[in-house]
């Protein structure tokens, strides 16, 4: 049909009819993207709607084939979740995580990307070194961190009497910061490469005029590099916050199920515990919806701030 028309212009003319208005000039595009559209509908759109629906209804897992009424309960699930101290604690833990992880990630990855950008030799080596934790499974590196940071681990034997007691991963004070350090360490390589790409778009003339004006390395970093990579910083902050909202593997494995005594639980861990283990999927869905709304609000604020800075 329209696809065999030889050039762009004539294609537009020949396919300008009603058909093209309804399905577009190349309706085969619908066919080619259909599997992906179905995938999005089945795996994202429908579950998303289902989660919202579930959070306003009473919903329990039942034996296969058994039909149980799922009456609407209004805001009850939200009420019971938001008055549950464990849930509120888990959100507070994410707050602690973000307070440590976000500044640490932004500063370390920008500084290391700047250093890497100036390095002439061994760039490939450094790139690989920084990126290896990012491509490795959390489960695998958690194994090493458990070995390094347990009570009798290497870190404590180096620290000797300075080692905290109880040790890092079983201390209610250190458990959450340790998770934040772990994630910072694991994700940093990704953010370094992100900044490295952003640095390529900072005009070289700005550095030259800064150095003509007598600015030192620190001054030109602060007044040229930092504002120059501002959009990338917005992205880094957003992605780091999304990571915080998603914590599961780390509290589950690194601190043994959000321990000690619930000191490092995360909302996703509670979604798992309430939804799957305690058969309260409706409340778990409510936690998920709250978390998603928070993430979207933060994304909106972040976008607003980044765009305002660009103007």
């Amino acid at each position: 049909m329209s696809t065999i028309a030889p050039t762009t212009q004539s294609r537009q003319r020949s396919a300008g009819g009603l058909m093209a208005k309804v399905v577009g000039r190349q309706p085969i595009g619908l066919l080619l993207s259909a599997p992906y559209v179905v995938f999005l509908a089945v795996v994202f759109a429908f579950p998303l709607g289902f989660a919202v629906w579930m959070s306003f209804h009473k919903f329990r897992f039942t034996a296969p084939g058994v039909k149980v009424a799922t009456p609407g309960v209004g805001l009850d699930n939200y009420k019971s979740v938001l008055t549950d101290p464990d849930v509120l604690d888990s959100f507070r833990h994410v707050g602690v995580f973000i307070l440590i992880n976000v500044p640490l990630t932004v500063i370390l990855s920008l500084v290391l990307a700047t250093a890497l950008n100036k390095a002439i030799r061994a760039r490939a080596f450094f790139r690989v070194a920084f990126y290896v934790p990012y491509v490795t499974a959390s489960v695998a590196v958690v194994g090493v961190w458990l070995f390094l940071f347990n009570s009798h681990g290497l870190v404590n034997s180096i620290l000797g009497p300075l080692a905290p007691d109880p040790s890092w991963l079983v201390s209610s004070f250190w458990a959450m910061p340790m998770i934040a350090f772990f994630v910072t360490w694991k994700q940093l390589g990704f953010f370094i490469l992100l900044y490295l790409a952003a640095l390529q778009s900072v005009p070289k003339e700005l550095y030259e005029s800064a150095s003509t004006d007598g600015a030192g390395a620190w001054k030109s970093f602060w007044s040229v590099t930092v504002p120059g990579v501002r959009p990338a910083t917005g992205l880094v902050v957003l992605l780091a916050i999304i990571t915080g909202a998603n914590l599961f593997t780390e509290p589950y494995l690194l601190t043994g199920g959000g321990g000690p005594d619930g000191a490092s639980t995360s909302p996703v861990l509670l979604i798992y515990q309430k939804g799957i283990l305690q058969n309260h999927p409706d409340q778990a869905a409510a936690i998920g919806v709250i978390l998603m709304v928070l993430v979207l609000i933060i994304a909106g604020i972040n976008r607003f701030l980044t765009e305002r800075g660009n103007r």
Partner: peptide, 17 residues
């Protein structure tokens, strides 16, 4: 859009389905 909707948040409905 789906890149900012974390998969973890869909885990309960996906598990049910």
């Amino acid at each position: 859009l789906i890149q900012v909707v974390p998969f973890q948040l869909l885990m309960i409905p996906l598990y049910v389905l």
